[in-house]
Design a protein around this nucleic acid. Structure first.
Length: 834
RNA sequence: GCCCGGGUGGCGGAAUGGCAUACGCGGGGGACUUAAAAUCCCUUGCCCUUACGGGCGUGCGGGUUCAAAUCCCGCCCCGGGCACCA
């Protein structure tokens, strides 16, 4: 009987929602609080799987809840449509990337609509549309004017599989982020960069403002990534080589009297000059060459054994005047600091290891502030803590902290160095030698050099008829019609830039475009952005914790400095949801374990899919997809549906007003239980939506409530139809953010006119969330001393047991020692104390 | 090595100082049915016990407390981020 037909019901309500435009957000509506809820826009490729589904289900539940709370909710969706997979698929299938992409977008859109997510579809954007990427180009030109965008030749990460450059953020342990088995190579290229390092400090400092709203682990990851390190830059002159010197960077200048070598990276540019004229130079050069050859692969560097050789030269310690041998070693990174370091074996683990192998002296210059001193003869590892200086000339006796400050100041005074801050973060290289991306809007003119494309010539459109081979240089370079143009300054011949932008540029500001998606004069209207921003809640995968989210923050700050927006952080709250796993691993095409969202919805309906994804685990945890467990969610919806069908006729015509209070004094036992349980569930569900975001417990609260209602059947005996109608209606409202279609259907069956989209979230009464209380007198040593208040709603035995326990606790808290406890009667407890 | 999470039944998980294992899945038994599906009911942490009942139990070892999965100290293990970063 009466099992509901999800396909029919879901289609019915989706049509009604669409016709009435119930999810359309109204710009600049001052009469309501705004709520900008954003889910990360998908890259439309292949199938929309349960991982996407989970992301949007969480977002949709919150969007619907917030609407019922009276918020003006902006809940948009769009497509991150540029990128390499489209290009690769096009080469493989002999189509155009645009065709492939548009087909995928059409499919994604169909599926998301089929799921009934409450998006304002009028605001849909696609990053591969010229109307969109035009503003990428416009923003790039503004950055060019400000010196944020610049061009330089540099060593870049090159993925031979992608045939393009990768940003540092796209290299994982030396491998390509998209080709897990392809080692990234190093290549010298002219590239466009965005000066994100200029914002390093601000990106770091502003994280304080994100605390509470962003998970600590994401902030920690970004902090790690920026990698700020305060230290000292020190010049070491080379002995007997006038004018030649090496600079080192150290965070521990206090240990400098313990330095027993100066060590250079094999790639240090000063090496050639240094070894010029050294006895045995041929041998030295051979060593160098061998070492360089070995340490080309990024992967090997971290694990390789320390190796080095003495160059035959010495450097002068600017503090002690001591001569230190200059070595070259593989563990010194060319890219970090100055590419050179002072080796202090006694106080650095790596230096210690190196010194052991090559028998360099170990000189202790820092001792612990308390506890036994470190003795050279007992030393088995370096002492890396701060402490008090010894054997350090005039600095002996100072603490490490004081010494660092004093020594840095003295260095500066003597012209041998200064305090310095270094970062791990590098500027963001955005040039890509691929077709399917935003053309970089600059020209190269023999006479005028680099010339920006004037604003009124934007967008620089991607030419449609470009031959894609996936090999060699930028595909755009092979299209003479695109490349050859005239210089807007001198009118002479010029060549267009043929690289395209990293697609992370597209997604660094897309959320602004949703506020004003059709604007043809500007990327967006400042006033509309002022109304909607900042984003109240952003939901997406943790894999974007660094890349996308760091770039988005950076863009926001640049846009603020350009006067486009008036805030410095775009996202107030971030929620990274867990992955959906199958067989313990993430769903992916290559593993062949993808559960398609469409198949799932055809089998169970989207409401069941939603209930299951919310119920199976708290949203931040990974979720193992289970075909068996989803049946439970299906059963739950069927149960509540059958119950509503059963009683709907009896209550349909009754007047209804949730704001009127139930008269508990006049209520029957059955009514009391149902009313109290309803308010308890409502409190828990409300709390889950407001603060915890643990929707698994929201669903279980509703299941418990349903079980309780079932236990009270038949509901037309000892129960007023009005109270029944209120209970069922409240249940349906609570369910509606989680299973919206079936909720609308039941809402209608219960006789409500107007959809749930017009309904308000019910308020719970605090007094009804607690059990009714009864009092049991307690006597101590035979005299009544007070009453213990316990909750009703349990059996008599439970009540008594609880009362005795509470009474004993109260007595013990007074510091009395209990001899024994006597239950005098069911209504009286005597406790004997000493 | 540094930083951030986490460890609870057969499984997903609940409980954030107050009845450990809610809710669901799975298992066992039963009702309905010619049968199956669906549905409904009972049962289900481990050990001892015919039973009544008792003991143990939230990674391990201590501690605080009348009371600890929860707080404190010391470990172990798992996941994630960064990493010869000077």
């Amino acid at each position: 009987m009466a099992d509901y037909d999800p396909q029919q019901i879901e289609a019915k309500w989706q049509k009604i929602w669409a016709e009435r435009g119930v999810f359309e957000a109204k710009d600049c509506d001052a009469s309501r609080h705004k709520y900008y809820l954003l889910e990360m826009l998908p890259y439309p490729s292949g199938t929309l799987h349960m991982g996407h589904m989970r992301n949007y289900t969480i977002g949709d539940a919150v969007a619907r809840y917030k609407r019922m709370r009276g918020f003006n909710v902006l809940h948009p969706m769009g497509w991150d449509a540029f990128g390499l997979p489209a290009e690769n698929a096009a080469i493989k299938n002999q189509t155009h990337p645009r065709e492939w992409t548009n087909a995928n977008i059409a499919e994604f859109r169909r599926v998301l609509r089929r799921f009934g997510f409450s998006y304002d579809w009028r605001r849909e954007i696609s990053t591969c549309a010229p109307e969109y990427y035009r503003w990428n180009q416009w923003l790039f030109l503004r950055m060019l004017e400000k010196g944020i965008a610049y061009r330089k030749k540099s060593k870049v990460n090159w993925c031979p599989e992608c045939e393009t450059v990768l940003a540092n953020e796209q290299v994982i342990d030396g491998f390509c982020w998209r080709h897990e088995t392809t080692q990234v190579q190093s290549k010298e290229l002219e590239q466009w960069f965005l000066r994100i390092t200029q914002y390093a400090d601000e990106l770091l400092d502003d994280m304080k403002r994100l605390e509470g709203g962003w998970p600590e682990r994401v902030l920690a990851m970004q902090r790690n990534w920026i990698g700020k390190s305060r230290g000292t830059r020190i010049r070491f002159d080379v002995a007997q080589k006038d004018g030649l010197a090496f600079e080192v960077f150290t965070t521990r200048v206090d240990t400098i009297y313990g330095a027993t070598a100066l060590v250079l990276s094999p790639w240090h540019p000063g090496i050639e000059k240094l070894i010029d004229g050294v006895p045995g130079r041929a041998w030295t050069e051979g060593q160098l060459k061998a070492m360089r050859q070995k340490s080309t692969k990024a992967v090997d560097i971290a694990t390789a054994e320390k190796e080095g050789f003495f160059t035959g030269r010495f450097a002068v310690n600017p503090f002690s005047g001591e001569q230190l041998p200059i070595w070259v070693a593989n563990f010194v990174l060319a890219e970090y600091g100055t590419g050179a370091l002072m080796a202090v074996p006694a106080h650095d683990g790596r230096d210690y290891e190196f010194a052991e192998k090559y028998h360099l002296p170990v000189t202790i210059v820092v001792q612990p502030l308390s506890g036994p001193p470190v003795r050279p003869e007992h030393m088995t590892e370096s002492y890396t803590e701060y402490g008090r200086l010894v054997n350090s000339g005039p600095y002996t006796g100072l603490t490490s902290e004081d010494a660092i400050a004093r020594m840095t100041a003295d260095l500066q005074a003597k012209g041998f160095g200064n305090g310095e801050t270094t970062y791990r973060l590098k500027d963001w290289g955005i040039s890509r030698q691929r077709y399917w991306g935003t053309p970089i809007p600059v020209l190269y003119c023999d006479k005028d050099g680099i010339v920006p494309v004037p604003d009124d010539q934007l967008p620089v459109r991607l030419p449609e008829n470009v031959k894609l081979t996936g090999q060699g240089q930028s595909p755009l370079a092979s299209d003479p019609e695109f490349v050859n143009t005239t210089c807007p300054k001198c009118g002479g011949p010029a060549r267009r830039e043929t690289d395209t932008m990293d697609t992370f540029v597209d997604s660094s500001w897309y959320f602004y475009r949703y506020t004003d998606p059709k604007n043809e004069r500007a990327p967006f209207d400042k006033e509309v952005v002022r109304y909607w921003f900042t984003i109240d809640q952003y939901i997406g995968g943790i894999e974007h914790a660094i890349l996308h989210l760091l770039y988005a923050r950076f863009f926001c700050k640049v846009m603020r400095d350009l006067g486009l927006v008036d805030h410095g952080e775009p996202i107030a709250r971030l929620f990274p949801q867990g992955m959906v796993l199958k067989g313990g691993v993430a769903m992916s095409k290559s593993r062949g374990n993808v559960v398609g969202a469409v198949e799932m919805a055809e089998k169970y309906g989207s409401d069941t899919g939603r209930v299951y994804t919310l119920f199976a685990a708290p949203p931040e945890k990974d979720l193992e997809w289970s075909e068996e467990a989803i049946e439970g969610s299906s059963r739950f919806l069927n149960k509540i549906y059958r119950l509503v069908v059963k009683y709907a006729d009896r209550v349909r015509e009754l007047p209804f007003d949730l704001s009127k209070q139930t008269d508990m004094a006049a209520a029957s036992a059955k009514e009391k239980i149902i009313v109290r349980r309803s308010h308890q569930a409502l409190k828990r569900v409300t709390n889950d939506f407001e603060t915890r975001w643990h929707f698994n417990t929201s669903v279980s609260s509703l299941m418990e409530l349903l079980n309780e209602i079932h236990a009270q059947e038949p509901l037309d005996v000892d129960m007023s139809p009005l109270i029944l109608k209120r209970a069922l209606s409240a249940f349906v409202l609570m369910l509606s953010p989680i299973a919206p279609h079936i909720a609308e259907e039941m809402w209608q069956m219960l006789g409500h006119t107007g959809g749930i989209w017009q309904a308000r979230w019910p308020e719970y009464r605090e007094d009804l969330t607690k059990e009714e209380q009864i009092e049991i007198p307690v006597q101590i040593n035979g005299r009544v001393r007070g009453k213990i208040v316990v909750s009703d709603g349990m059996s008599d035995d439970e009540t008594l047991e609880r009362a005795v326990k509470d009474a004993r606790i109260a007595v013990m808290l007074e510091g009395k020692q209990i001899v024994r406890t006597v239950v005098v009667s069911r209504k009286l407890v005597n406790i004997v104390v000493r």
